[in-house]
Design a protein around this nucleic acid. Structure first.
Lengths: 195, 195
DNA sequence: TGTACATCAGTGAACGCGCGTTCACTGATGTAC
DNA sequence: TGTACATCAGTGAACGCGCGTTCACTGATGTAC
């Protein structure tokens, strides 16, 4: 009854509508809850309609995850324009995880078994990490794979994980991250003055 | 035919057998694949037998996760006895994640929605983190919640996550972790000599 | 400008599947007397 | 020491469910002439 009124026979942009609905589920519940049928239901379309645009459920998830990595890149890039680029970069990463937990979990978690099977996803993920590592390594291209750059990535990623998995209460998350990143960016103050 | 020979009517230790079978599935496939029916099947017992010992599927998973946290604590404790306690602690954490990916993911992932609902799990997890933070903070009890202790936890946890989620190839994992932990324990060498 | 037709985004019914859980039961074990 | 009986760890059948995917189809859109 309202279908013909609200929506013409052709949806217009079902792929994006599916991705958006999937992200709603992602944030409401989590990656395990995202299904083709449930997603289609939210869009108001039959479950089979999705197959015109996605080869499978996994294909839909991969496309959502790729979108997520592109957003993460954009967020990090934007954060780098202030006076404290590295600190803000780290905070942006943490903020992304906190704001988009479900998406973050999909991007990094075990739901997508084979990232490599989806070139667009693989590329988006690679670009995000390259950006992060380059930012930390500075102008020196060669040091992109330095342990220091990997360590920074690990720190930022680990804190994000601990926050979104409720191992550290969310209300402390931003404050702690701020302190940690500031300290990490400062010449180390000899953690424990010689025994 | 072989059931009465290999196993008496009463199993003897079904709870442990269930946990062990669940962990096999965990390592073969991942947390999503662990089901009550599948686990019981592996033990060679009817699906309903499990309900004599676990209130639900989630209860079984919680009990497996609690076991995992106790093992993580033991592993970390053992690592602290050498000449480089902090470095070995970090390496032990990473090694635990690499060796027991599925278990690690269950312990930290979103499968167990409400950790707090299972006191034994909650306690085991808390004990593991307290141990880690105390180890990093040193004798000084008060600094257990220092940003520095949290940062160390985040670093170790983040690297573990990146490794087991295949964002950094496993063959580099141990070497990288070693370099990073050694460097982190050393008075910082002024990452970028004044612009 | 009008018509024939190919294209393609939708539809609903149906498939087989494995899941978690409940039920009424069976049969071995251990205890009280 | 032997027997009656409560306890309790198992069993198999059945439930309802939602899932991913396939199928044959319908009907709107856009294009060639």
């Amino acid at each position: 009854m309202d279908t013909p009124v609200n929506r013409p026979y052709r949806h217009g942009d079902l792929p994006n509508a599916m991705r958006a609905a999937a992200r709603t589920i992602l944030n409401e519940t989590g990656p395990e809850a995202v299904g083709l049928r449930e997603t289609a239901r939210r869009v108001g379309v039959s479950a089979t309609a999705a197959y015109r645009h996605f080869a499978s459920k996994e294909d839909l998830l991969a496309s959502v995850a790729a979108e997520g990595f592109r957003e993460l890149s954009a967020t990090m890039e934007a954060a780098m324009s202030g006076p404290e680029p590295l600190i803000d970069l780290g905070l942006a990463y943490v903020e992304f995880a906190l704001q988009k937990r479900g998406l973050f979990r999909l991007m990094f978690g075990p739901i997508l078994v084979e990232r490599k099977k989806y070139p667009a996803l693989n590329e988006a993920a690679g670009a995000a990490f390259d950006f992060l590592r380059s930012a930390v390594a500075g102008e020196d291209e060669a040091s992109r794979d330095d342990p220091a750059a990997i360590a920074a990535w690990g720190l930022v990623h680990g804190l994000s994980s601990l926050f979104i998995d409720d191992l550290i209460p969310e209300e402390h998350a931003r404050g702690l991250a701020q302190q940690i990143f500031v300290q990490a960016g400062t010449p180390k103050p000899q953690r424990r003055p010689a025994a």
